[in-house]
């Protein structure tokens, strides 16, 4: 179950999605840097982010551990050293996002998309990654070990030097275009859909 709400910048004729929970888009915000800082503080205080648009922002060294994210957009967002440890993430879109050294371990994630994202040195260990779209993602030096990947997809993604040990691959579409030094020890990789002939739909 998830929720997603869209809001448009209130400046007449703008049409861009509003930044965070403000009335305006980032371009029409007076001080984008201060606005971003204030937003991070607000999320930490509330321990939740609902229907917030983080698109095209840069977030560095933030700790959102155990926070709740629902219906948020991270399209094209640059996330570096951001902690989502043990967070709950529902219906969030990370398409085209660049994630470097972020920690999603122990995350409870459902119905999210990381399409075309660049994931480097990130941990998704011990997580629930259910109905998550990693299609076209470039995943390097990352780990998904001991995670439940039920109904997630890795179609035409690039995987290298990453670990998927002891994972549940039930109903997972695992069709990377390239996979180099990827380990799946102890995982039920045979249950994954590996070719077009075995699609469920």
């Amino acid at each position: 179950m998830g929720m997603f709400m869209q809001r448009i910048c209130s400046i007449p004729g703008c049409g861009t999605r509003a930044f965070a929970d403000s009335e305006h888009c980032l371009g029409h915000t007076e001080d984008p840097f201060e606005a971003t800082k204030a937003l991070a503080e607000k999320i930490l205080a509330r321990q939740s982010a609902i229907n917030i648009d983080f698109s095209d922002l840069s977030l560095v060294a933030q700790d959102f551990s155990r926070c709740k994210f629902v219906g948020c957009r991270f399209g094209g967002t640059k996330l570096s050293h951001v902690m989502f440890t043990g967070a709950s993430v529902r219906l969030c879109f990370f398409d085209r996002a660049e994630l470097a050294s972020c920690d999603f371990s122990g995350v409870d994630m459902d119905f999210c998309s990381f399409g075309e994202s660049k994931i480097f040195d990130c941990s998704f260990e011990n997580s629930e990654l259910i109905h998550v779209n990693f299609n076209g993602a470039t995943i390097n030096e990352s780990t998904f070990s001991s995670s439940n990947l039920y109904d997630s997809r890795f179609i035409l993604s690039y995987l290298s030097n990453s670990r998927f040990n002891d994972c549940d691959f039930k109903r997972v579409y695992f069709m990377p275009v390239a996979s180099e030094s990827v380990s799946t020890h102890g995982s039920n990789i045979l249950e994954a859909v590996r070719d077009m002939e075995h699609l469920y739909i």
Partner: peptide, 16 residues
Amino acid sequence: GHGPPSTLGTEKKFNL
């Protein structure tokens, strides 16, 4: 109707 969500941009480039 089935499976995870996506965006049209991702589908344009990576839909089999």
